[in-house]
């Protein structure tokens, strides 16, 4: 009898200790079925979400971009086919114009300062989508349209600037750096040379 008990203990203890764990409530149950539509358990979803969170973790740059007011600008608007230019919004206080515009292959040194004219019913100026006109300062766009056959008069510097008629645009996001080149000015009269304009501020 004693031998039988020892034999039983010798057999039973390893069987209990080395047995695979019993399935718990949260452990995945792999069922071999022929069905391809196996329902995922909540535990699986949670695991994937955690992995996604790690993958989509917001980068500082993305957070900054998302909080820019210019993020309200539509990604694409108007007629976006045909010849295009790269444009960077540049604001100069009391100076006529919108910013700089260049062809893809050109450098910003070759860019032209333009006054921007929207096309009624087709494409308004990009800043009109934003709370304030300066909200897209140093923002870049791909512009579609043509140069106007006429120029615009810049009253501060008494110069004529090119006019670009905007037919459509695509937002390219914030520029890497500000363009610090001054807009065109006559040699005798720089920007704000005679900045005192009409006081009819009523």
């Amino acid at each position: 009898m004693g031998l039988l008990i020892l034999f039983f203990v010798w057999i039973a203890i390893p069987a209990v200790c080395l047995a695979p764990p019993l399935p718990t409530r949260f452990s995945p149950v792999v069922e071999e079925t022929n069905s391809e539509s196996s329902m995922a358990l909540p535990s699986q979803e949670g695991q994937e979400a955690r992995e996604d969170e790690e993958i989509r973790k917001p980068v500082d740059e993305k957070v900054v971009r998302a909080t820019l007011a210019a993020a309200h600008t539509p990604a694409k608007h108007g007629e976006t086919s045909g010849e295009s230019w790269i444009a960077q919004r540049t604001m100069v206080e009391d100076y006529c114009g919108w910013g700089w515009i260049k062809k893809d292959k050109d450098s910003w040194r070759q860019a032209r300062w333009v006054a921007l004219e929207g096309t009624r019913g087709t494409c308004p100026l990009p800043h009109t989508f934003l709370p304030r006109p300066e909200d897209d300062k140093n923002y870049q766009y791909r512009f579609f349209g043509t140069f106007a056959p006429y120029r615009a008069y810049e009253p501060q510097a008494d110069v004529w600037v090119d006019v670009f008629i905007l037919k459509g645009f695509m937002s390219l996001g914030p520029a890497k750096e500000e363009i610090r080149r001054p807009p065109p000015a006559q040699a005798s009269s720089g920007v704000n040379r005679f900045a005192e304009r009409g006081a009819n501020v009523r």
Binding site: D94, G97, P133, A148, A152, Y153, P155, G198
Partner: peptide, 21 residues
Amino acid sequence: HSNKKCWMFDYSNRVDGGGLE
């Protein structure tokens, strides 16, 4: 609107801060 060299019937209306030629 005007400055010392120009009468600007159109000012900051078609383009920002200036008038068309």
